[in-house]
Design a binder for these strands. Structure first.
Lengths: 164, 164
DNA sequence: CCGGTTTTGGTGATATTATAACATCACCCT
DNA sequence: AGGGTGATGTTATAATATCACCAAAACCGG
């Protein structure tokens, strides 16, 4: 599986490479924009990149604390807020949790999240057509969308078979 | 404006009628399914129907307490959970808040929520085409959607003009 | 390099949102 | 009446998120 296939998160893949590429890409993006990927921020991103499951802010915080960073909530929230602002991490509203973006920098990408209720992996699907429908529906009634969150709960391909 | 127009929430309308119809419809639905629209539950729904803004559970709780119901969080959460289960109320993930459904009972409706960042009104738009795109996108990678949340932030027609 | 400014990070306290666990009550059915 | 069920109340606590304040580090114009 190519590293940029949609929903790679649901398929077996070379995760070390997957994470390393995302991290490298994150560094490029920050370098380009002048944003500072400081140690806490970078570490927070690494932690999120370890898994395709979404992590709560306090889980990230615990990990950061283990690594010698502060152990108060703002430490995690500030790092996460920064990463979300840079588009390197997404917040999954449904779970009050965060997941690293697998293909950051994608030209204003409007992600659609698929959340497996069985294995808890979160994948980003190509959301262009969904966002287009959304824009159209909103446009018809004169609503101007600034940003949209699309999150679907269900079963990923692997868990469908397991459960069935 | 007809009571069932999409996104009526953004347009001036006879809200007393709007709320009364929704409440009547809720009673029908509960009668049909045997669900019990008890006093707290009914009151919680009435409270949510007073406005098209989303309300937090604790706001609803305060109102319920004023009306002589219990003043502990479970009182509100249980009533709200019931209403959500019956499809009479929707939870807006983005806001950790709740809004009454303006057209309950609609044939397994898969709503798309439009949240105005200026006036905070939440409207439900017809989401068929959005859900279809979503199903298609998920289907392509073998993901089986159980339910989806689509929430868009932006400006409603009225606030677009005001702000502009 | 200096000094002012901004950004970042640490910490304690607190706010907000949500649930667990258990007791009680009301109703229905027999 | 007895007993089951579902609804409600209450205490306590868990989980998530933010505020306020300070200190240190990075940046920037000279």
């Amino acid at each position: 599986m190519h590293a940029h296939d949609p929903a790679q998160a649901f398929a077996p893949h070379d995760h070390a490479t997957c994470a390393a590429e995302a991290l490298a890409r994150a560094e490029e993006i920050c370098a380009e924009t002048g944003a500072r990927l400081t140690p806490v921020r970078r570490r927070a991103l690494e932690i999120l990149l370890e898994t395709h499951k979404a992590m709560g802010a306090y889980d990230v915080l615990d990990r950061l604390a283990e690594d010698g960073f502060g152990h108060q909530p703002p430490v995690a929230y500030r790092a996460l807020d920064f990463l979300v602002d840079q588009g390197l991490v997404h917040r999954i509203q449904r779970l009050n949790a965060f997941t690293a973006c697998t293909h950051p920098g994608g030209h204003k990408h409007a992600p659609v999240f698929l959340i497996c209720e069985h294995c808890h992996v979160v994948a980003e699907a190509p959301g262009r057509s969904v966002q287009d429908s959304l824009e159209r529906a909103a446009g018809e009634i004169g609503f101007a969308i600034e940003r949209a969150h699309v999150e679907a709960l269900g079963l990923c391909p692997a868990c469908r078979e397991t459960d069935a």
